[in-house]
Amino acid sequence: MISVDDTVKFHFDVDGENFSSAGEASIIMKKSLRQLGFPQNVIRRVTIAMYEGEINMVIHANGGQADVEISPDEIKIVLEDSGPGIADVDLAMQEGYSTAKDNIRALGFGAGMGLPNMKKYTDSMEIETEIGVGTKITMTVKT
């Protein structure tokens, strides 16, 4: 038996070059959380938050890294990229605000709901960002 502070970790390289694979990590996480027997609403919240984050990294930052740490009472998602950074976090958190380009919008993304949804579906969300350096978002979902 493992002790309570034991965790299962997942690491994903989110490929910024390949738009068609965007969303892959959240689908793998969904399958794993299901195998671990987490309740459906937890699985849904984690996968939506992670999906939005993955898409953001692909659209804005040419990809990045996603790390998920599962412990029995909490799931922590850390998304880190070396993209342009977010100039005004408060503005970016507003529903409908987006800096996505037209070609991305044509695919149905860039509705300005990414960050707001990530906040909405998680229990905590912290954004660390620096212009020209990158962005790190840490989210947790209590199980």
Binding site: V4, V8, F10, R34, L36, G37
Partner: peptide, 24 residues
């Protein structure tokens, strides 16, 4: 009714986590 028994590694969450670490 949803049937999750097929996907579940173990009924015990900690045991399931231990198994998943081994799978990885």
């Amino acid at each position: 009714k949803p049937n999750s028994a097929v996907t579940l590694l173990s009924d015990n969450r900690l045991e399931a986590m231990r198994m998943m670490a081994q799978i990885q």
